[in-house]
Write a protein that binds this DNA or RNA. Structure first.
Length: 151
DNA sequence: GCCAACGTTGGC
DNA sequence: GCCAACGTTGGC
């Protein structure tokens, strides 16, 4: 079971500074089955998270977080006023789940360009062409390498 | 704003 | 079950 993850967020939507301010938050709004399955089936309290800023001027890793609560049904799927409302989901048969994520620390911006410069990270999912998945597992060796870069 | 890549939907 | 059409993601 993976112990480390990378989670993308658009900083205009939710940034590492927002997480620093709030401490811990439900990671709601994920509407992709693969990402959902990672949260529901594999993510465990205490797992390490690389907090990645996407779709912005300087995409890259902006901080460290950790999983602070296991997955439960995402409340926004039941809320008709939410942009994440899913008319096919019911409380009896929820379709979407979220874990909770807690702030650990902010880091220097480890940019996408820098990440690409290290052969040790060449296989990271987030660096692969066409990757769009918002939650991806990170190899322990890759995690360790990145922790060394950020220490 | 462009566009490649990918996921989802729905007609057949 | 196939696959075209469409929508979304996300780097540039």
């Amino acid at each position: 079971m993976p112990r480390y993850w990378l989670m993308k967020s658009e900083p205009t939507e939710y940034s590492i500074d927002d997480l620093a301010r709030e401490g811990a938050v439900p990671w709601f709004g994920v509407r992709n089955y693969q990402a959902r399955n990672f949260m529901r089936d594999q993510m465990k309290v205490g797992d390490g998270v690389l907090f990645y800023h996407s779709s912005c001027a300087e995409p890259g890793i902006a901080g460290i977080a950790e999983v602070s609560a296991p997955a439960y049904p995402d409340a926004t799927q039941f809320d008709p006023k939410s942009r994440y409302f899913d008319p096919k989901a019911t409380p009896e048969r929820p379709r979407w789940f979220n874990v909770e994520v807690r702030f650990v620390r902010k880091t220097r911006l480890l940019s996408l360009a820098e990440l690409r410069s290290y052969p040790a990270l060449a296989r990271m999912r987030v660096l692969q062409k066409g990757n769009r998945l918002s939650i991806t597992p990170v190899d322990p060796a890759e995690w360790d390498f990145i922790m060394r870069l950020l220490s």
